Computed example of a mutant assay.
Amino acid sequence: MKHITTAAFTVAVLTLAFALAWAGAGSANHSHDDLYAAVEPGDSTKSVRVVQITMGEADGKMFFTPSKVDVKLGEQINFALRNAGELDHEFVPASTADNQKHAEAMMKHPNMEHDDPNAKKLAPKKADEIIWKFSKAGEFEFACLIPGHRESGMVGTVTVK
């Protein structure tokens, strides 16, 4: 009986420790306040400009094409995402500082899943989309935060004028 109680207690403590560590990393590093002050969910029933973003890898580099997008203040953009590569890739919008913090958390927790409707992870040869309306001028970033991908070139910018 004592062994069962000790084993159950150990499992409970380890489960709680893992949950707290995971929740701490996720909540602290999923803040996109700068971005969300500047964008809002788009309305697909209104005028939308489509921007195709292709993700992939070649010659030891990983990329977004295009890696720079210019947007007019108040404009809605449908980011039509396509993973043309052989690996999973992500499209994660945020400020550069937030994405760098998030990338560090991803290095520590490489299997972390995003709970964010504006971040998309795509398997090879898959497609998805995100519609944003830009309501604040500035420069914002999109990146792939899968460990090693950002460092291999998977980062882009959206400039809102």
Score class of each variant (00 low, 15 high):
53 I>R: 07
53 I>V: 15
53 I>T: 08
53 I>E: 04
56 G>P: 06
57 E>P: 00
57 E>H: 03
58 A>T: 07
58 A>F: 02
59 D>G: 13
59 D>R: 11
60 G>S: 06
61 K>L: 12
61 K>G: 05
61 K>S: 11
63 F>S: 10
64 F>T: 06
64 F>P: 01
65 T>V: 08
66 P>H: 09
66 P>M: 09
66 P>A: 06
66 P>T: 05
67 S>Q: 01
67 S>M: 01
69 V>W: 00
70 D>R: 06
70 D>Y: 05
71 V>G: 00
71 V>Y: 01
71 V>L: 00
72 K>M: 10
72 K>S: 08
74 G>Q: 09
75 E>H: 06
76 Q>G: 02
76 Q>R: 04
76 Q>L: 05
77 I>E: 03
77 I>D: 03
79 F>C: 08
79 F>N: 02
80 A>L: 14
81 L>A: 08
81 L>P: 04
82 R>G: 04
82 R>M: 10
83 N>E: 04
84 A>F: 01
87 L>H: 15
87 L>Q: 13
87 L>S: 09
88 D>G: 01
88 D>S: 06
88 D>V: 05
88 D>M: 06
88 D>N: 06
89 H>L: 02
89 H>V: 00
90 E>M: 04
90 E>C: 01
90 E>S: 05
91 F>S: 01
92 V>M: 09
92 V>F: 11
94 A>H: 13
94 A>L: 08
97 A>Y: 04
98 D>Y: 02
98 D>E: 12
100 Q>Y: 11
100 Q>F: 09
100 Q>V: 11
101 K>Q: 12
102 H>D: 06
102 H>I: 03
103 A>T: 06
104 E>R: 15
105 A>W: 03
106 M>R: 07
108 K>R: 13
109 H>M: 15
109 H>Y: 15
109 H>P: 02
109 H>A: 12
110 P>L: 01
111 N>F: 12
111 N>S: 12
111 N>H: 12
112 M>F: 11
112 M>A: 11
112 M>N: 10
113 E>L: 13
113 E>T: 14
114 H>I: 04
114 H>G: 06
115 D>K: 15
116 D>F: 13
117 P>M: 13
118 N>D: 14
118 N>F: 14
119 A>F: 00
119 A>C: 05
120 K>W: 00
120 K>V: 14
121 K>M: 10
121 K>W: 09
121 K>G: 08
121 K>S: 06
122 L>K: 03
123 A>M: 07
123 A>Y: 07
123 A>Q: 11
124 P>A: 06
125 K>A: 12
125 K>V: 08
126 K>S: 11
127 A>F: 05
127 A>M: 12
128 D>T: 09
128 D>E: 08
129 E>D: 11
129 E>K: 15
132 W>I: 11
132 W>M: 14
133 K>Q: 14
134 F>N: 02
135 S>G: 03
135 S>K: 14
136 K>N: 03
136 K>A: 05
137 A>G: 05
137 A>S: 10
138 G>N: 02
138 G>T: 04
139 E>Q: 14
139 E>V: 12
139 E>K: 15
